[in-house]
């Protein structure tokens, strides 16, 4: 099995960071596992973490009255789950659940925020990277909202 450091270094999100920055980030990381159906976090709870999925699929769910939980997105290997740790009020907007058995790296958001406060260059790097994650999500959400398969033919 690859070490935690190797997983972090190989992740596209952290590509291009210096060894020192990677070590700082690695200091806030740990390996975690979830069984199929297990919750990673719950909508409304305090968001003090994010996850880099290594294996399996994580669903983001919202509870819709009269319909029950609906999945708005799934996140797979190599992708990041969670940006709520980055901006106040540090609260999860969705519930995260393991669709199948999931292995991930969990990052402690409070720990990372402290390191970013101490080291604004690292803070800037991380913000830029999470902005990219957010832009990707936003584009995908826009496409989903357009409901392109709805009335279009072909």
């Amino acid at each position: 099995m690859r070490t935690l450091d190797a997983v972090i270094t190989d992740s596209p999100v952290f590509e291009g960071l210096t060894q020192e920055q990677l070590e700082l980030i690695g200091g806030c990381a740990s390996n975690v596992g979830f069984e199929a159906g297990e919750r990673l976090f719950r909508e409304g709870d305090r968001a003090d973490a994010f996850f880099l999925v290594r294996h399996g699929l994580v669903s983001l769910e919202a509870y819709v009255p009269n319909r029950g939980p609906i999945t708005v997105e799934t996140i797979g290997p190599g992708e990041i789950v969670g940006w709520s740790w980055l901006v106040p009020p540090y609260m999860w907007h969705f519930t995260g659940r393991a669709v199948d058995d999931v292995r991930a790296v969990q990052f402690d958001g409070a720990c990372l925020r402290r390191k970013c406060d101490d080291d604004p260059v690292l803070g800037y790097e991380l913000l830029t990277r999470f902005a990219l994650v957010l832009v990707d999500r936003l584009q995908a959400t826009r496409l989903q909202l357009m409901d392109v398969y709805g009335d279009n033919v072909g």
């Binding site: 699929l57 669903s59 769910e61 319909r67 029950g68 939980p69 609906i70 999945t71 708005v72 997105e73 799934t74 797979g76 669709v99 199948d100 995908a140 989903q144």
Partner: peptide, 11 residues
Amino acid sequence: TAGHDWRGNVG
């Protein structure tokens, strides 16, 4: 979009 019974990708 999918309900709880779908175990595949959403997006």
